[in-house]
Amino acid sequence: MLPVLAQEATGGMQVQHLLTFKKKTLLFQDDFSKGLDTTAWRSEIDTQGTSSVYVRQGQLVLDIKGGVTTWLNKPLQGNILIEYNRTVLLDGGMHDRVSDLNQFWMATDPRNANLFTRTGVFESYDSLQLYYAGVGGNTNTTTRFRKYHGDGQKPLVQEYLDKAHLLQPNKTYHIQTIVYNGITQFIVDGIPYFTYKDAAPLTSGYFGFRSTGSRQVINEVKVYRIE
């Protein structure tokens, strides 16, 4: 049995307890060894200067002055596990800044069947329905979880301000995200940062890497169906 930390919930964040799921089945993987598959990934980049998304040495690189969302061009549904490795670089690059290891998941647009219509500017996503986690936001001062309701509302569900939940430069983090029977969880290096039982869970939608004003590398992306 594979462990999943989850939450006994009445209205959100409560005491965590250990759940299990029986198995996982691989739905998608990309190690970027063959470059950037533009049929699998779609990037929305804020049009500021030298920003770009590319693959180098088997890693997806988000090298961004403004904002970016790189979407997996595959809708996800039901109980899933998403995992990948991600590093925020600080070694003299033009856009290097320790900030904003972020992601969207289970994203849909209530007004448009085509999700991919935005510019990369963060506020342009306010009208979507989705879950959002942002580690080391606001120049590495906040780590936050939000649910976007699709009407401009995106209430803050939980926030950390302590150093233990912020970013370290050039450290590779293993990120896991679980959607499981109405519960969603965001895990960093085996530690559950956010666990949320949703009274109106988002059960399908798109996953995207999100960042702004930084250079980050990502690899070993895998998506599983879990039971």
Score class of each variant (00 low, 15 high):
Phe28Lys: 03
Trp71Thr: 08
Val53Asp: 00
Tyr54Trp: 05
Ser33Glu: 07
Lys74Arg: 14
Leu26Glu: 12
Ser52Pro: 01
Ser52Cys: 11
Asp63His: 10
Gln57Trp: 09
Arg42Gln: 09
Lys24Arg: 14
Leu19Ile: 05
Phe28Thr: 01
Thr70Ala: 11
Ser43Gln: 02
Thr69Met: 12
Val68Leu: 09
Leu26His: 08
Phe32Arg: 13
Tyr54Cys: 02
Phe21Leu: 05
Thr47Gln: 15
Leu72Gln: 09
Thr20Met: 11
Gln59Cys: 01
Ile64Glu: 03
Leu62Tyr: 09
Val61Lys: 06
Asp30Gln: 12
Leu76Ile: 09
Ser51Pro: 00
Ala40Arg: 15
Asp37Pro: 03
Gln77Asn: 12
Lys65Asn: 10
Arg42Ile: 13
Trp71Arg: 07
Ser51Trp: 02
Leu27Met: 13
Ser51Tyr: 01
Ile45Ala: 07
Ser43Val: 04
Arg42Ala: 09
Asp37Met: 01
Phe28Val: 05
Val68Asp: 06
Trp71Asn: 02
Leu26Tyr: 01
Lys65Asp: 08
Ser52Phe: 00
Val68Cys: 14
Gln29Asn: 12
Ile64Cys: 07
Gly58Val: 12
Gly67Asn: 04
Asp30Cys: 07
Arg56Phe: 14
Ala40Met: 04
Thr70Trp: 09
Phe21Cys: 09
Gln57Ser: 15
Val53Cys: 07
Asn79Asp: 15
Val53Asn: 03
Lys34Arg: 14
Asp37Ala: 06
Val68Ser: 12
Arg56Ser: 13
Phe21Trp: 14
Glu44Gln: 13
Gly58Asn: 09
Asp30Phe: 00
Leu36Lys: 06
Thr70Ser: 14
Leu27Phe: 01
Thr50Ile: 05
Leu62Trp: 04
Lys23Ala: 13
Lys74Val: 01
Gly35Glu: 06
Gly35Asn: 10
Gly66Tyr: 09
Arg56Val: 10
Thr50Leu: 03
Lys24Val: 03
Leu27Pro: 03
Gln77Phe: 04
Ser33His: 11
Thr20Trp: 08
Leu27Ile: 12
Asp63Arg: 12
Ser33Leu: 05
Gln48Tyr: 08
